[in-house]
Simulated assay, not measured.
Amino acid sequence: MPAYSSYPHRTGAVLILTAVAAGLLAGCGGGGGSASDNSSYTPNASPSVDPSLKVAAPLPTQGLLENPCSALTDAQLKDLGLVSPGKATQGQPALCGWSGEIQENHVNVGAVPQNNRGISDIYDQKSRQAYFQPVTVGGYPGVLADTQDGRASGSCTLWVGITDQLAFAVATSITTGENKANSCTSAQHVGEAVIEHLKGAA
Rank of each mutant, 00 (worst) to 15 (best):
F168L: 09
P8Y: 08
G138W: 01
T73S: 15
T176E: 13
D146I: 01
L82M: 10
P47L: 10
D74A: 14
P51V: 11
A167S: 15
S39N: 11
K199R: 15
T185S: 12
A22T: 09
R117G: 11
A181T: 14
N38R: 09
E104S: 14
L24A: 00
A111P: 04
A187L: 03
T157G: 01
A57K: 14
T176G: 07
S173F: 05
V135N: 02
A3L: 13
A201R: 14
I122P: 00
E192R: 07
K180N: 06
P43R: 10
T172L: 07
D149N: 15
V55M: 09
A130R: 12
S39P: 02
A21Q: 13
S6D: 14
K78T: 14
C28H: 03
H106E: 10
G81E: 05
Q114T: 06
M1Y: 03
V190W: 04
K54D: 03
N182M: 01
S48C: 05
Y4T: 03
G177S: 04
V194G: 03
Q148T: 13
A22D: 14
G12F: 09
I174W: 00
N67M: 05
G81V: 08
S120D: 15
S84M: 00
G31E: 03
S36G: 08
V14S: 07
P93W: 06
Y123V: 02
S173C: 04
D149T: 04
N67W: 01
G12W: 08
K199W: 11
L65P: 04
C184N: 05
D79A: 15
C28L: 11
K180M: 12
A193Q: 10
G118M: 03
D121M: 05
N38P: 06
